[in-house]
């Protein structure tokens, strides 16, 4: 199915680029492939991949980490929730793209501004999911552990946290997607390396072939990251994600 899906797509692409539109608009797939090979072998692409991926990795880790901790506190402690919730409800509607101008003023066009923007894109979705995960712990589960003798701390560690894991993992998966969506505009507007930068540069020079190569590489990277994350999550946290179910 995977082969059929992409096979059909590439066939249509070839057809359109040969008979319908100019190669400046849609270059044929074999041209794109010919452009791609030297970009990869001269380490041009790998260098930019590394730049983008390391920004995503740092920003996503910071955003998820802080999102999980804050979310658990907010889900568990009412006054923390009531204190932070209004502010968060305000800030979470500012997309990472909306934050680019201020990030440049604060942090310049170095790495820090990209870390900040990816952090911004990951934090809120992980936070919201962590809060929900903690609060949605089934009351019977809490009561059961209570009458089996669990203390407040034990209930938190042994019941509330495990109950929140599926929701947190879902939040992190969405955050990965958001990180990939945020890195490109950030690099287009404020960077001198990374796939977004390369995309912008190729576009300015009307090198449509190269634009296509970068887009393809980026799509593959996003899919691969999500796959890797899911594999790691089910390897490390499988029993909390209810993957043993009979459906």
């Amino acid at each position: 199915m995977f082969v059929l899906s992409f096979g059909t797509f590439i066939a249509l692409w070839k057809f359109a680029s040969t008979y319908l539109v100019s190669p400046y608009i849609i270059p044929p797939p074999d041209d794109v492939l010919r452009t791609a090979i030297p970009m990869v072998t001269t380490a041009e692409i790998p260098r930019h991949i590394l730049a983008s991926l390391s920004r995503v990795a740092v920003g996503f880790s910071l955003g998820s980490g802080l999102g999980i901790v804050t979310g658990i506190l907010m889900g568990r402690i009412k006054w923390v929730h009531d204190l932070l919730d209004p502010v968060i409800e305000f800030f979470r509607f500012l997309s990472p793209t909306a934050m680019i101008p201020i990030a440049v003023i604060w942090f310049g066009i170095g790495e820090t501004s990209k870390y900040f923007l990816i952090f911004w894109g990951s934090f809120f979705v992980v936070l919201i999911n962590a809060i929900h995960g903690v609060m949605a712990t089934p009351p019977i589960r809490l009561r059961a552990s209570e009458c089996l003798g669990a203390t407040r701390l034990q209930i938190f560690v042994h019941i509330v946290l495990p109950s929140a894991i599926p929701s947190i993992v879902t939040g992190m998966r969405v955050a990965i997607a958001l990180s990939f969506m945020s890195i490109i505009p950030a690099e287009i507007l404020a960077a001198d390396s990374g796939l977004g930068f390369l995309l912008q540069q190729s576009s300015l020079l009307l090198q449509t072939n190269r634009v296509f190569v970068v887009l393809a590489v980026f799509g593959i990277l996003g899919g691969a990251s999500d796959w890797t994350f899911q594999q790691a999550a089910s390897r490390l946290l499988g029993r909390y994600l209810e993957v043993h179910g009979r459906g």
Partner: peptide, 10 residues
């Protein structure tokens, strides 16, 4: 409801 009372990760 035993389903809700058991800990699914154990």
């Amino acid at each position: 409801n035993a389903d809700a009372a058991l800990f699914p990760w154990l």
